[in-house]
């Protein structure tokens, strides 16, 4: 470990953080949130389209936040960030995926059809 421990500013984690990254992350996620709000508020799309649009916005916002704010990527000099990413992806798939699956099964049995949604009986 050659980088000086005396000055935390020289840690690679700190060096990677730039103001521009944080501001970009903040602006991108704010814009996406605003877009989703406008879409929902004005009922611009049919119900199911709205659902997909919000999910899309949320997905991009997650990627932007993970990359710009948390600096999680697959660069070699920051192995623990890569480890965090490797953990994050399966957890993301499990939690969102299983929730999606559960709700699709639940809705099929308990809820009226959402307008515009394919494959419901």
């Amino acid at each position: 470990m050659s980088h000086g421990h005396s000055d935390p500013i020289h840690h690679p984690e700190v060096q990677m953080a730039t103001n521009r990254n944080y501001i970009t992350g903040f602006v991108v996620s704010s814009l996406l949130m605003l877009a989703a709000t406008i879409l929902v508020d004005g009922h611009i799309l049919p119900s199911f389209g709205l659902l997909l649009a919000i999910i899309g916005c949320a997905g991009i916002a997650i990627i932007a936040q993970v990359y710009f704010l948390l600096h999680i990527d697959i660069s070699e000099h920051n192995i623990w960030n890569t480890v965090a990413l490797v953990m994050f992806i399966p957890l993301f798939i499990i939690t969102i995926g299983l929730t999606w699956w559960m709700f699709s099964q639940l809705y099929m049995r308990t809820m009226p059809m959402i307008p515009g949604m394919p494959g419901m009986h």
């Binding site: 299983l98 559960m102 709700f103 099964q105 639940l106 049995r109």
Partner: peptide, 17 residues
């Protein structure tokens, strides 16, 4: 991480889930 649904088996999401 893959067991949380057993807290509400009776919610009605059917046999597969």
């Amino acid at each position: 991480w893959i067991v949380w649904l057993h807290h509400f088996f009776t919610m009605g999401m059917g046999p597969y889930v």
